[in-house]
Amino acid sequence: MSFDLGLLRTYGVEILVAFGVTFLIWIAASALGMIGGFAVAVARRWGPAWVAWPLRAFVEVIRGTPFLVQIFLLYYGGPFIGLSLDAVPAGLLGLTIYGSAYYSELFRTGFDAIPKGHLEAADCVGFSRVQMIRRIIVPEMTMLVLPAMVNMTILMLKETAILSIISVPELTLEVSSIGSAHYAFVESFTILALAYWALVELCGWAGRLAESRLSRYRFAHS
């Protein structure tokens, strides 16, 4: 048995399509997860108690169970509560929910890390709560949590592989089934590893770019 990447030639298009599916689900779920997570963090921080408590429970449940179990329950259990989704929407929804719980915790710690005085200064010049969030809290929090956000977004990419169990035609499902069909496990998983790694590098590069653009804002001293 020799190491033969001929699979790439034969299944190049299929692999590229699957790569595209993974990429799109990853980007969409990460973006939606950040938006959802931000909403959860804001509601928990400034919302009334009857909103904050259920959201806290939501975050605890999502963080306390494996993503594999969550996606299984959503896809196969969903129909019992009238939620019948195809594999791709179910996968996207599941990953978004998962991401929003983690991102919300990240943003929450970011809120806590903003020096209280910066908000008092905004309060003193007459900012409303919404203006304060938009103009002060979001930009300051972003620069505080950016490295952790890059990290979480990389984890989101790797979690897309789990979607193969509900038959989302993403990279892991497609490449591993090609590998099984040809008994070319090492080759197929090498291709998989390289493909994910390329995306992780892309994410890391984007993160570094953003960090360098924000670095001149570094906190003076407090």
Binding site: P115, G117, H118, E120, A121, A122, C124, V125, G126, F127, Q131, R135, I136, P139, E140, M143, L214, Y217, R218, F219, A220, S222
Partner: peptide, 27 residues
């Protein structure tokens, strides 16, 4: 009322000009 703090509390993501003009625009 205008207020100045011991820790200055400038907003780190805005320039000096941004800090001074911000509330004029926003508020």
């Amino acid at each position: 009322i205008g207020m100045c703090f011991q820790q200055f509390n400038l907003w780190p993501h805005m320039t000096a000009l941004g800090n001074v003009s911000e509330a004029l625009v926003t508020v």
